[in-house]
Amino acid sequence: MASTQLSDGEKTFIIHGVLDNLRNDGRTCENYRQIEVECGVVSNTSGSSRLRLSNTEVLVGIKAEMGQPKPQSPKTGFLEFFVDFSANASPEFEGRGGNDLSEDMSTRFAEVFQTNNILDFESLCIIPGQCCWVLYIDIVLLECGGNLLDAMSLAVKAALANTRIPKVTVLRDSEGGEDIEVSDDPDGYHTLEISKVPLFVTLSKIGQKHVVDATLEEEACCSASLVVSVNSSGDFTGMVKKGSSSLSNDSIHDMLVTAKKVGIQLHKGLDTLLSEVGQSTAGRGFLVG
């Protein structure tokens, strides 16, 4: 992650504050910062969203294209993730500087979205074994203010809610060949059911306690973190420990309990917002916790 330089004194200050459940900006350990979401911001995509988590800004665009299904699952469509770190976010992402980090995050998303029931992948199938919808999800980081994965997953869920997949009819001609016709009707689309899409919750261990939604300064004091992917019912669809320090089993226990609680709240907040916003482009905000 793009990191800031902190002196030892500042680090100690943050660690002591966290022990007392008070962070530099006045939040408790389980609070998220102000989140603003806008949907439908990029016109030539099938779905898009822009999300601002205080200093972190993420733009997600989803394009639905037709492609060949994977040989091991010929009746389903699939998702392809690509994370791009714009040089705007931090000078160290210039050129190929952000490649390792972005590959790592793309992998995280790809892994977590592999479970069968996250999206109705079978509805993305056009002709079994030959043609299916492939959703290319491109995530661009515009500004880096800490807690990148959480912001990206929130934006992805919002963009998926916003995605319109055109209706498709399959015509069979007399010789047995098949032609695919895409509907031109502006209302001829179907949307995706996103109730089971997971969100990432990153828990950073600072001193003896852990915090949710760490800022850049807090990430610099953090020895290890746990990135948990939680769905709306509190189940975990993927988890990985990051960082070069170790965690005790009790800490992990506490972190997972927090992850479940916070994850459910996050989902609720985002779902209410998305149902209010609908397809309009006006921005709304919400505060969790």
Binding site: T115, D235, T237, L256
Partner: peptide, 13 residues
Amino acid sequence: QTSSLLQRGHLSC
């Protein structure tokens, strides 16, 4: 101490 943790799949807490 635990130094590495990787979970895949869909599991309850």
